[in-house]
Amino acid sequence: MIPLEHVIGLSAILFGIGVVGALTRRNLIVILMSIELMLNAANVAFIGFARNWAQMDGQVFVMMVITVAAAEVAVGLGIVISLFRNRDSVNVEDVSLLKW
């Protein structure tokens, strides 16, 4: 049997990698992929807890997370396309109008 601590450890490492990717990369598409990685890390924790206490609720929440991830990717990539059309770039440093 896999110990719960190791499942949460895997989730924490993946979440850390996702945070660093979202903070350090400048390509908007890679930032969106890092956000997907963070959502997946949360899913791993949910599934681990669901197994440990034999409750189905965690797996239902994972389905909700997958739905939100799909919606987020559709809208996010729509924004990327319209950004590329207006600015000819997907570099986040070219989109700093709201930055003081």
């Binding site: 896999i2 499942v7 895997l10 598409i29 969106l32 992929m33 997907e36 997946n40 899913n43 791993v44 599934i47 681990g48 669901a50 197994r51 797996q59 994972v62 389905m63 997958i66 991830a69 799909a70 990717v73 559709a74 990539l77 990327v80 396309i81």
Partner: peptide
């Protein structure tokens, strides 16, 4: 990993939605 943690349906959904749909959308863009 999900299969090992007894989440068989979620494992299938993970491959179909994440690997099948979301990443294809990324590659398309």
């Amino acid at each position: 990993v999900f299969v090992l943690l007894q989440a068989h349906l979620i494992a299938a959904l993970q491959i179909m939605i994440y690997a099948g749909a979301i990443v294809v959308l990324f590659l398309f863009v």
